[in-house]
Structures are given as structure tokens and as C-alpha cells.
């Protein structure tokens, strides 16, 4: 049971082959083996949301998943989303609205927000609060986070509604 297992996992677009202990969580694997320390562990029981990552496109608690379960999967962390500019408008809205303070919960909150923005339309503030209810933030009281997500969603919807720019013949 303690023997290491070889896994192949695509993390932030790169194939990574590693030998991991069966008990190693995906969160610890990302943080320690891959040095992707943007994923945080705040409770290690799936209650705080600081460790959220994308696993095959689904938002999951990386503290509740073993690294071996990610064998063959595609994982994306906050570093990956930031690098491929998938959350640029959220980052900008969070920055402009002061929607973070100590920053520890922020990567997980941005993951949730990424999920919110993936849905069509502009969510209501209550819908945003509902979506955020799996993320603990002890600093902000959530108000600015709700504002920032609302702003980013509105901007995205406005951009989608704008007519396609004319292309040269």
C-alpha cells in the first residue's frame, strides 16, 4: 500500500511523470513535487476551498483527491490559468476592487469565479454568493469579491454582445 506509484499527469499544459505515494494528496503533490505553491491547503477536508484546482475541467478540492487519481488526467492550477490569461478579466476586477487582502484564499476564490464566468449570462449577486459559499475568506467579508466577480461577468457579457469587428476581405 505504501509502494510508490508512477503517474503521468498533464499539469498546466505540461506532461509530468512522477512517482508518488498512494496516500499523497493532489494538493501536496502539486505543492511539493511540482512546486506549484499557488494551490493552498487551509483545512485538508474540503471545507475551505483554498486548494481548488481544475481536474479534467471540473473544479475539485485537490486536498480530497489523491495524486494517483489524477493519473492520465489534465490538471490546471492558478498558475496555469494565470499564464494562459484565462482569468485576466477576473484578476483585473479583483485588483481594481481590492477583492483580496492576505491573498491566501485568493487562488481558490479565483477558481470558483472562473467556474461562475464559464456559465452563460450575468449571475445575480445572490447567485455569486451562493457559488462562493464553498470558499472561506476571513479577510474581506466577501463584499468586494462579489463586486469583482459581478464586474468581470458583466464585462464578459458586454464583450460577447458586441458585434464582431469587421474583418478585411
Amino acid at each position: 500500500m505504501n509502494e510508490a506509484v508512477n503517474i503521468r499527469v498533464t499539469v498546466n499544459g505540461e506532461v509530468r511523470s512522477h512517482s508518488v505515494a498512494p496516500r499523497e494528496t493532489l494538493a501536496d503533490f502539486l505543492r511539493n513535487a511540482l512546486e506549484l505553491t499557488g494551490t493552498h491547503t487551509g483545512c485538508e477536508m474540503g471545507a475551505c476551498g483554498a486548494c481548488l484546482v481544475l481536474l479534467d475541467g471540473q473544479i475539485v478540492h485537490s486536498c480530497l483527491i489523491f495524486a494517483v487519481q489524477a493519473d492520465g488526467a489534465v490538471v490546471e492550477t492558478i498558475e496555469g490559468l494565470a499564464q494562459r490569461k484565462a482569468i485576466a478579466e477576473l484578476q483585473e476586477a479583483f485588483h481594481q476592487r481590492n477583492a483580496l487582502q492576505c491573498g491566501f484564499c485568493t487562488p481558490g476564490v479565483l477558481m470558483t469565479a472562473y467556474g461562475v464566468l464559464a456559465r452563460p449570462g450575468v449571475p445575480s449577486r445572490n447567485e455569486i454568493r451562493d457559488a462562493l459559499s464553498g470558499n472561506y475568506c476571513r479577510c474581506t467579508g466577501y463584499e468586494a469579491i462579489v463586486d469583482a466577480i459581478e464586474t468581470a461577468a458583466r464585462r464578459r457579457a458586454e464583450a460577447a454582445a458586441e458585434p464582431e469587428p469587421e474583418t478585411a476581405p
Partner: peptide, 15 residues
């Protein structure tokens, strides 16, 4: 807007 935000919104804070 805060100068320190960039590292936190990109996952490059150093705790």
C-alpha cells in the same frame, strides 16, 4: 489599487 495584488492573483505569493 494595491501594489501587492499581482503575486496573490497569479499564485506566486510566498507564504
Amino acid at each position: 489599487a494595491r501594489k501587492e495584488d499581482k503575486r496573490f492573483i497569479t499564485g506566486s505569493g510566498r507564504y
